[in-house]
Computed example of a mutant assay.
Amino acid sequence: MFDTTRRRAMQALGLGGAATVAGCSTQAPTAAETETERRQMEGTATPTADQVAADPTDLPEPIDRDEPTTHEITLRYEEVTAEIEPGVTFDFMTFDGQIPGPMVRVRQGDTVDLTVENPPENALPHNVDFHAVYGTGGGSVATTAAPGEENAMRFRADYPGAFIYHCAVPNLDMHISAGMFGMIVVEPRDGLPEVDRELYFGQHEVYTDGDVGQEGKHSFDMEGMRNENPTYVLLNGEKYAWAAANRGPIEVDQGDRVRVFMVDGGPNYSSNFHPIGNVWKRAYRDGGVPEDGDLDAYADKNIQTVKVPPGSCMIGEMDTPVPERIKLVDHALSRVARRGMLAEVDVVGDENEEIYDPDAHDSSQEGPQYA
């Protein structure tokens, strides 16, 4: 089964057979066969990672130059076993061992020389489709690599915005659900408006054969994926990864303008992205920005919740005039309460009672008082 499944995957990807559209070949191994092959690798070649949750504060600096340049970028396809939550492990597929994959940040007109590596210990072939690329499959055909191989492509980033990249081999929904997605930001020629802090998040749903919190090793649940009934809905690959209950909260200073980049890998759920206790002061829906002109005028203002479809992104900015804990959620709130979708940002500073007074209750008054 192992050799046969791998051979069929190679043929479906054009590695020893006719090239096909990713995910659409009748010669491709089924999702069940892919999972069987992965299980055969368990406990042998699959490495174990301490975490897959990408640090939201670890992202490239804003672009500060007026001329185009060339970037040499390498992405490594890594299949790892890690915890979704304490006591619950899962076989993830990732770019560079993290979810979401590393942010790629360039300027409109820049050239990217991309190398991809698929380590020999991996079980499966992988590739990458950049939504910022003019080219067949967003570069997925050019970047397909079997275990133990590498590949490369070059592209010029001709249109600005925030765009997803993701694996696009047969059974691409399984690969994306297991973590293979990230973001490329193509800044417009005049750059993005200056802010004080930037954060980077990625949402996706994971389909497993166990219940939320059920201890032990969870395997991928094909039927759950087919029915779009996930076990977990996650921000950065772990249950409450960057909330106070886990690795968070993230701290910012009072008065900071905070920019949030968010990519929805899906593969199936749209996100209803909302900062509880705040608002998106400026929001760029679907990561869209104009090529020229006033970005501030282009942005939507004071948006409470931004719909982010699977396979898309958003850029949102928050003001922080009072100390508080901002909860970043999908406002389909059962995903927060039941399935792990939450990050928290603490604004550190002094009370500003003119804007918000948490101790305004006068105990001498009976009943609620309204102005």
Results as ranks from 00 to 15, higher is better:
M1A: 14
T4A: 15
T4F: 10
T5C: 10
R7T: 12
L13W: 00
A18S: 08
A19D: 05
A22S: 09
A22G: 15
G23A: 04
T26M: 07
A32C: 01
E35H: 03
R38N: 09
P47L: 06
A49V: 05
D50N: 13
V52A: 05
P60N: 13
P60W: 14
P60Q: 14
I63S: 11
I63A: 11
D64R: 15
E67K: 13
V80G: 02
T81G: 00
A82T: 03
F90M: 01
T94F: 01
G97N: 06
I99P: 02
P102V: 11
R105L: 14
V106E: 02
Q108V: 10
L114S: 04
T115S: 15
T115G: 02
T115M: 07
E117D: 11
P120G: 01
D129F: 13
D129L: 14
Y134V: 04
Y134W: 00
G135L: 00
G137A: 02
G138I: 10
G139F: 04
A142H: 00
T144S: 07
P147G: 05
E150N: 13
F155N: 00
Y159T: 12
P160Q: 07
A162D: 02
A162F: 05
A162W: 02
F163K: 12
Y165M: 12
P170K: 03
P170V: 04
P170T: 13
N171T: 10
N171H: 08
L172F: 15
L172C: 11
I176Q: 14
S177R: 06
S177N: 04
F181L: 12
F181Y: 15
M183Y: 06
V185F: 08
V186A: 07
V186K: 08
P188K: 13
R189L: 11
R189G: 01
L199I: 11
G202Q: 04
Q203R: 11
Q203Y: 13
H204F: 03
D209C: 06
G210N: 09
S219N: 15
M222K: 04
G224K: 14
G224L: 08
N227W: 10
N229H: 14
T231A: 05
Y232A: 03
V233Y: 07
V233F: 07
L235E: 09
N236M: 09
K239S: 14
R247K: 15
R247I: 02
G248L: 08
G248R: 11
P249C: 09
Q254G: 07
G255N: 12
D256Q: 08
F261Q: 02
M262Y: 12
V263M: 09
S270H: 12
S271M: 14
N272R: 15
H274R: 15
P275G: 06
N278I: 07
V279F: 05
R285D: 02
R285F: 06
G287C: 01
G293C: 12
D296G: 06
I303L: 15
I303R: 09
P309F: 07
G316E: 08
E317V: 09
D319Q: 12
T320M: 10
P321E: 11
P321D: 10
R325C: 12
I326H: 10
L333A: 02
D350Q: 10
E354P: 00
I355S: 05
D357R: 01
D359V: 00
A360G: 03
A360V: 09
H361R: 10
S363Q: 09
Q365S: 09
G367P: 03
G367Y: 06
A371S: 09
